[in-house]
Every structure is written in structure tokens, then in C-alpha cells.
Nucleic acid binder design. Sequence first.
DNA 1: TAGATTGTTAATCGATTAACAATC
DNA 2: TAGATTGTTAATCGATTAACAATC
Lengths: 210, 210
Amino acid sequence: MVTSVSVQTLQRLPIYLNLLKSDSMQSAAYLSSKAIAEALGLHEIQVRKDLASVSSGGKPKVGFCRITLIRDLENYLGYNDSNDAILVGSGKLGKALLTYDGFKEYGLNIVAAFDNDDSLAGQKEGNVPILPLTKLSDICDRMKIRIGIITVPTTAAQSICDLMVASGILAVWNFAPTHLDVPEHILVKNENMAASLAVLSRHLMEKFTD
Amino acid sequence: MVTSVSVQTLQRLPIYLNLLKSDSMQSAAYLSSKAIAEALGLHEIQVRKDLASVSSGGKPKVGFCRITLIRDLENYLGYNDSNDAILVGSGKLGKALLTYDGFKEYGLNIVAAFDNDDSLAGQKEGNVPILPLTKLSDICDRMKIRIGIITVPTTAAQSICDLMVASGILAVWNFAPTHLDVPEHILVKNENMAASLAVLSRHLMEKFTD
DNA sequence: TAGATTGTTAATCGATTAACAATC
DNA sequence: TAGATTGTTAATCGATTAACAATC
């Protein structure tokens, strides 16, 4: 049964998928929720509940068919139909993401990058052309782009976000460490490296004051 | 009063800090929790509770002293004393992180990178030397490195993680999309871009089947 | 003082975990 | 059949939000 899914569950789905596709699992045709849970350090009930929201179900005493589950997860996550995206901000982080080719696997396809600095226009970074900001609206419109990636400095992030929304972008992946205000129907997903570092840093501090 | 803090709160702290340091806030000496909440799209009670765990407190009718709060947050997050780290995996993502200089601000200092491919040894990437893997243990030991960043392919991640742990690493920042098994006292923080993409992708899919 | 704002204690909400019936 | 494993309903747990007393 496919029902609505919490963000927590949704974010675990790629992890299941990754495990099922990994070399170590290739030999098994069926996997129990217990086996999956142990491999990922989760609880088996959680695994069953997560998978129930995506898959056509497992078989009692047998478990989940690996191949079927992979297919169900990929479909649910949209890895098969690719999503075109644009990126704004060709600084270090932006260039890094343009060069990194790992997103294809997840169905993300960055078709164009934009930068405030017009002198970058015409260059390519990892096969993606860098264009002047003035062309953003036109391209989003013509190519029906729905995903925008923000890798500009904090100060510029909100205005770029506004421009994206005005150009028809429906989902924003924000790497600037700042809150973005958007209309209700637009999704902002913050990629918050500072938050991760906070967790690491505090763990160490607490270790050494115990 | 400084009490123990949930991971959720901890991860919001850099966001508060970022806001307080932003240009738009420079003019205010004191800020109410309500003003902060509105700027970040949070609830003011949550802001007060979050800040209570870090700061020496605000003043009724006045709010929180911006400067003091910045100092308290920076202290709590350890932005002042820098954390040395090593990175393993000088592929595209690894190089991107080495080149990206934004981590300094958060007190993270990558002192050396390692790669399986010895032909990379001796090169530099963003001022960080790339060394052969065989030198990892020795360097971690001598420099008392406690943070390890993993940007190797999934298949190599667990063995690199084991090597890090054996070399004295206490906190692992894992960019490989896989679960890592570690002893209890070691912290693994997963930077899960696939999870973010899952959220974006499903948002779009649901928008178009409504 | 009156009123705004803090900080704390209690209520709500949602996610995780437990218990257990269904089933192959 | 017996037993392992699924899927669902109920209980627990923790984070968020609400209510309100304290205070400048």
C-alpha cells in the first residue's frame, strides 16, 4: 500500500535503495526487514513501516524481493524520469557541484548555471554552460525547469530565490546558510553543512569535558 | 542556563548565528525572540527555548543582546577554537570540499587529504597536500586529528572509516551514501545529498499528480 | 505602574517502538 | 503443521507549541 510518507521516512528511502543495490546484497533474492535493519543500524519495525509506504509488500516468512523493491524505490523517488535543474552561483561550491557527476544517478540533471559576474558567461564547468543572470527567466520558462540550486553568498540568496520563483521554479535546493522566504507552494530544502559541523564539533567538545 | 541540547536545536544554532551576523541585523543592539522567529520562519517559543540552552539569557522587555548572543553561540559551537580534520577520497567531491574555503568560518581546518591512488600523492588541492593512504595513521596520531571526512566511493567507505577509527578519529563526516558501522563512542554525521534530492523530487511529483 | 518580553511548566503533536494478529 | 516474517493497531517517547507566571 502506498500512503503518504513523512519527511523522515522519505529521507531514509535512498539509504535503503543504496543498500539493496550494493555489492554485498547482490546474492540475495529476498531480504527480511530484520536483515535490512541490521545492515543499516535501524529497527526492523521502522524498516517495515518505511517500506510499506513505497512497496507492494513483502512475503511473510520470505521477506522483500530485492529486485522489486529496488524498482519500487526508484519509481517512488523519481530516479527514472530525470529532473532538469539550474544552478545559480558559480563560485567554489557551485563549480564543485557542477563538476560532481554523482547527481545523475538520482535523476538530477543540471542544464545551465548562472552567475552575477558576466565575465564568466560563455565558460563551461563540467559540461554545463555558465550564462548571465539576465537569461535565467527565459531559460527556465522555455525548458520548463522546476528545480533551482542556490550556491550564491548569503547576501544574494534571497533575491536569487525570488528570481527563481518568479521564473517558475517550484523547488529550491539552498546551499546558502540562510533562511529563504518563499510562497507557500514552493519547497525549500536547505543543505546545511554548518548544521552538520555543529553536531561534529559539539560531540568533540563534550567528549573532552566529560 | 546551559543545559543539554537536542540535535534539532543544535542544528538550528548556526542559523541563529548566521542571522545575527548578517548585515540586516547590524543595526539592532537587542533582538526579541519574536523578531528572530519572524526572520527565520520559526516560532518564538522555540527560539527562546533554543537560545536558553546556549546563552546567559535575555532581558524581559528588551530581548537578547546581539553581540553577547553571537559570542555565546560561537563559543558553544566551537567556532573559535579550530578543529583540524583530514579528508579521504580526492575525487570530484573531495576536491570540491578541499577547494571550498567556507569551512574555516566554522572552525574546520582540513590539514591533509589522502587518496588510494598514489599517483595523486604530492599534489595539492586548495593548499591541502594529498598524501598516500599509508601515511594516514601516522599523521592523525602526530597531529592529534579527531575529525575525518569521507568522500570515497560507497564500496570503500567502511574500510576507510575503520582505518580512521583505528587512527584515533572520533568524529566522521560521511559524504558516501552508505551506513557506516562504528564503535559506540564514535560519531558519524552523514551528509546525505540523496536524501535532500528525494525530498525535492517527491515534492515535484506530488505537485503534478494532485 | 502597565506592558512587553522572558523563561518554565504543561499540553499537543508526530515519529518511533512495541505488541500482536495475519499469513505463507 | 510450526515457525518465521509481514503489516497494523496501540503505547511510548521526544520535540514542538501553548499557557502563564516572573520581571524589567
